[in-house]
Design a protein around this nucleic acid. Sequence first.
DNA 1: AAAAAATTTAACCAAACGGTTGAAAATCGA
DNA 2: TCGATTTTCAACCGTTTGGTTAAATTTTTT
Lengths: 114, 114
Amino acid sequence: MFNHMVEHHLDRVFHALSDPTRRAILDRLAEGEATVGHISGPFPISFAAVSKHLGVLERAGLVTRKARGRERVCRLNPAALADARAWLGFHQRFWAERLDALDAMVGQKSGKPD
Amino acid sequence: MFNHMVEHHLDRVFHALSDPTRRAILDRLAEGEATVGHISGPFPISFAAVSKHLGVLERAGLVTRKARGRERVCRLNPAALADARAWLGFHQRFWAERLDALDAMVGQKSGKPD
DNA sequence: AAAAAATTTAACCAAACGGTTGAAAATCGA
DNA sequence: TCGATTTTCAACCGTTTGGTTAAATTTTTT
């Protein structure tokens, strides 16, 4: 159902999201587009490190960078979250169903409604 | 709003989900609880490797392992997906809003209607 | 044309990752 | 009790990660 090349893409998206600095960059970027230097400011790591983080985010499709003069303007791509969200949504619902079925089979109603 | 120790937890959940073998283990586990050996079967990697993957999933709270004799029975914990899903849901919505606002602003300035 | 500014790239490092094999620790069946 | 079974743990290995600094690149400013 989900199994396509999406799998490969999910690797990159989930990996990109697994780092707190990168999630902070995304938060920062949610306030509006910004240049690499502008993004880099508040972080206690080097400029180059932030640039590499942006590379990871870009390869995951979460961020786009386009040149404007000597600067690179970074912008969020909310659509890239859709795959990850779909995976989570599907599985969370599916797991819950299966576990409910298991509970029902065991016959011990835990009394937890939907 | 989200920023608590949850951050630290999100690191582990997203990282756990970033590996295709681990996602496959979760898929497998969605069919019902299973022992480590049972899970390990279909995978072309060693038993110990699967055990380590299960450790990662357990530390992320996605899976619980409980002893039953000399076996360990593994089971999904759907609740653990909630945090990740909440993060994604909030951000996806928030990003979309901000970008809509940005588009509207740009549209106003350039006189281009929506 | 030269200097300054914004980014990326390259080379490097320590730590973590995903994998292996083999030994250790429980528990079960004989 | 002894041997087999199930699982983890420990040590190791090559690759990736997240970070650094320094050099290279591109564009703007003077």
